[in-house]
Amino acid sequence: MAMQEERDMPFTMPSVTNKSAGGPRHVGLELEFAGMDIRDAARAVADVFGGEVREVDTFICTVEGTTHGNFSVELDSSLLRSKGYLKILHEIGIDLSDANEKRIERILLDVADELIPYEVVAPPVPMTELAPMDDLRELLRRRKAKGTRASILYAFSMQFNVEPPDLTAPTLAGFLKAFLLCYPWLREASGLDMTRILSPFIDKFPSDYVKLVVDPAYQPCDEAALIDDYLDHNPTRNRPLDCMPIFAHLDRDRVMARANEKHLIKPRPAFHYRLPNCLIDEPAWRIAREWDLWVAVDDLSRDADTLAAMGEDFLNTPGFPLDLFTDSWKEKIPRWLDRS
């Protein structure tokens, strides 16, 4: 489905779009929303990317054979998707017939619609081919998808799973340094909604970890040291840049031995950027704009001289670490990034 008229904001690209070993870097996308029937959302995916819609059950649809592989549209609750409620009912002596199970599922779906988002999960696509994602956003908006600000109960997000050029410790540490240094600016530029600020899902990184990583002297000797430092301070997925997937991809046993929420960690060679709202029902909102903010982090991660100078400046900013995100530092970031 062509919707070129809606692409009024192109997707900017980082300076490196290929992996060090060759081939394009990929990006996965996750959109959380309410207000639509799961089958209608799946059909919107198929309208943009092709493929066939398959209803797995009440809570999951897939769109198979698209131009990029398989998409899924699912209720974002592991208890419902895994039918964990059946186990709970069985343990209290209730076993349901197929008809009654469907009836219970419909009731749960009606209740969940006010609290739990649906989620479109896109397969990894080459980052140079992200433009149709805004076509999907617009089509979902036209079909009445509701975003973060549609209810005080919604803490919906839009998430990128970004593949780095390689998985070496210097490259990954560079991304962490860049993100931590840019975080106050990213948070303001994204217009983070209060429901998401108050939720636990994107808790800020602890000050002592920020101090450790942004120091120009921080150069972990290998991936194991980088992972151990991260887990010492962040044994949780609940960070705006969740590194559990990429670290579990590198060393699953090391991560699973120490991480919280083990059952929710999905190893993959990508950073899980969870900060943006999903303002899918607002006509002016664009995925391309949120991506552009990430690109600033992506490019900064490879600029060792600027990272070192910014780190030194940050550590000398008045108020650190007790008042980590002071206006004085936040106002400096666009100048460092040449985005004034």
Rank of each mutant, 00 (worst) to 15 (best):
I246P: 09
V213S: 07
F201P: 00
L226V: 05
D208Y: 10
P216K: 13
P216F: 05
I202W: 00
D229V: 00
Q219G: 00
V210H: 03
H249F: 15
Y230L: 10
N238G: 01
A217W: 00
D229G: 03
N234Y: 00
C221L: 12
K211E: 13
D222V: 12
D228N: 15
P206G: 09
V214T: 02
K204C: 07
D232E: 12
T236Y: 09
M244F: 11
R254W: 05
L226H: 10
L231D: 06
V214W: 04
N234C: 15
Y209M: 05
F247H: 07
I246F: 02
H233N: 13
A217D: 13
V255I: 13
R254L: 14
D203C: 06
A224M: 08
P245L: 05
A248E: 03
A224Q: 15
R239S: 10
H233W: 10
H249M: 04
P220D: 00
L212C: 02
D229Y: 09
Y218C: 07
L231S: 05
R237Y: 03
H249Q: 11
F205I: 04
V210T: 14
E223V: 14
H233A: 15
K204E: 12
P220T: 10
K204S: 13
L231Q: 11
V214R: 08
L231T: 10
A224V: 14
P216T: 08
P240S: 04
A248Y: 07
F247Q: 00
K211G: 03
A224L: 11
R237D: 02
R252V: 01
L226E: 05
K211R: 14
D242Q: 12
R252M: 06
D203F: 03
F201G: 06
K204N: 09
A248S: 15
C221W: 01
P220G: 09
P235L: 11
D242L: 10
P216C: 07
A217G: 11
D229P: 02
A224D: 14
D232Q: 14
C221K: 14
F205W: 06
I227C: 09
P240G: 06
E223K: 14
N234F: 02
I246E: 05
